[in-house]
Write a protein that binds this DNA or RNA. Structure first.
Length: 412
RNA sequence: GCGGGUGUAGCUCAGUUGGUUAGAGCGCUAGAUUGUGGAUCUAGAGGUCGCCGGUUCAAGACCGGUCACUCGCCCCA
């Protein structure tokens, strides 16, 4: 059996249509907020991703990394933000801010595949660079919400939001949390004991029942926010209220790396098992400077198309197709030119390759054509074709030079 | 990387305590119908039972390994 590489899959035409439809929606919605599309390479020097998080598991063991023939360390991008930030720096785009970018493309992670989680997957996302105000957070969240609405995902999806505060607040809290949990170190799950040293905030996200019990009385993040951070978050929430965007506060939403700050949010579905997060984002003010650029604020999100397609589930109709059905040698010799003429007029034309009238009609039906243009010797004599509506079965005669006009008027 | 479940036709699945030539529905191809598709009827094609090894007179079934899918863990910038 010839199998695709683990964690990759083929998008057959029907799936392709769904992916394309959702990607198009996201692009259009982003446009409405003034975001422009940007596309970066699907691989970068490994250092681009390494600089984003030395300790991160994703970088150390979940990337496709290899040496090219010139001995360069190359990594297939595991997410979109790093490459876009690199492009911003490489092209000197930091001169003029804010920058508002939309992007869509394949990402790669060497992980164990699950439903809605593949080794090659497609993400759409937006990045807003150079806006340090809460208005930026609100804008990208509003964009996300409108996008999900547009593709019909409202039921069973909720916006969960949290704040990570600024650097000072987070350090303060981290210390308090570690101090608290240290007393219970041996009672924690093995995973959380490791997290306690590497990435203590992640323990808040633990699924272990016993861990959850220990966390019930742990210090609360909001008590450690300084005035600025408190104010920032309150401002974000107030503006979301103003727009009528509903959310639930979820202190478990955590980001491990240091350049994350303030707002962190996820749109979560409860229909996808463990892979419930459908769209996730937040503020990453420290990232650009960490990559060697100027100190610019950033906020954005990314969404996996694969999961969105699983949830959207509505099948997209094929574009309207017209079959040309010649009968007899004379007609067959004219069909190619007729097909070509109608294609020039912008119509989608299917021209069969062989077969009797009956055969060709069957074929037209099975490829999903909406109309059949039938002509043989009789029609050539009278300079008219029979145009049959394959949905209703109604058939009319149309003069040769009116075929395009007739079909165009029917399709509108 | 770790643990559970599942692999039989293109798809969805039967297949008895191990026993002759592995079945069904849908789909596909051809015909009924040489100027009219869908519906119906008839016929046909399509299988290394995921792969490799083992047990047995005999394996689709039992055992081991492996690959893939799937559910969860880890992780998710």
């Amino acid at each position: 059996m010839l199998q695709p590489v683990r964690g990759t899959h083929d998008l057959l035409p029907q799936e392709c249509r769904q992916y394309r439809a959702i990607a198009n929606s996201s692009r259009l919605i982003a446009q409405r907020y003034g975001y422009e599309e940007i596309e970066t390479p699907i691989f970068e020097f490994s250092s681009v991703f390494l600089r984003m998080g030395e300790a991160s598991d994703v970088v150390t063991k979940e990337t496709y990394t290899f040496q090219d023939r010139g001995g360069q360390e190359i990594t297939l991008r595991p997410e979109g933000t790093a490459g876009i930030m690199r492009a911003i720096i490489s092209n000197g785009l930091t001169q003029k801010t804010p920058l508002k970018y939309y992007s869509c493309g394949p990402m790669f992670r060497y992980e164990r595949p699950q439903k809605g989680r593949y080794r090659q997957f497609t993400q759409v996302g937006v990045e807003l660079v150079g806006v340090a105000e809460p208005l930026g957070d609100v804008e990208v969240i509003a964009l996300a919400e409108q996008f999900l609405k547009e593709i019909g995902l409202t039921k069973g999806i909720s916006l969960e939001i949290n704040t990570l505060g600024d650097q000072e607040s987070r350090n303060l809290y981290r210390t308090a949390l570690v101090t608290y949990l240290n007393d219970f170190r041996t009672q924690l799950s093995p995973e959380s004991q490791i997290r306690l040293d590497l990435n203590p905030l992640r323990i808040l996200d633990s699924k272990d029942v016993n861990d959850r019990k220990l966390l019930e009385n742990c210090p609360v993040f909001r008590d450690y926010l300084n005035a600025e951070s408190e104010d920032f978050f309150a401002n974000v929430l107030k503006k979301l209220d103003l727009l009528g965007i509903t959310y639930t506060l979820n202190y478990q939403i955590v980001r491990g790396l240091d350049y994350y700050c303030h707002t962190a949010f996820e749109f979560v579905s409860h229909q996808l098992g463990a892979q419930g997060t459908v769209l996730a984002g937040g503020r990453y003010d420290g990232l650009i400077s960490q990559l060697g650029g100027p100190n610019l604020a950033g906020v954005g999100w990314a969404a996996g198309l694969d999961r969105l397609v699983l949830l959207a589930e509505k099948s997209i109709d094929k574009p309207c197709l017209i079959s040309i059905i010649p009968v007899g040698d004379t007609a067959e010799s004219q069909a190619l030119q007729m097909a070509q003429d109608l294609r020039q007029e912008g119509l989608n034309i299917d021209l069969g390759y062989s077969g009797s009238l009956s055969k060709r009609m069957k074929k037209a039906n099975s490829v999903g054509a909406s109309w059949a243009v039938i002509f043989g010797d009789d029609e050539i004599k009278s300079q008219k074709v029979a145009i049959r509506d394959l949905k209703s079965g109604l058939q009319v005669e149309v003069a040769f030079d009116k075929i395009s006009d007739y079909l165009q008027s029917k399709i509108q």
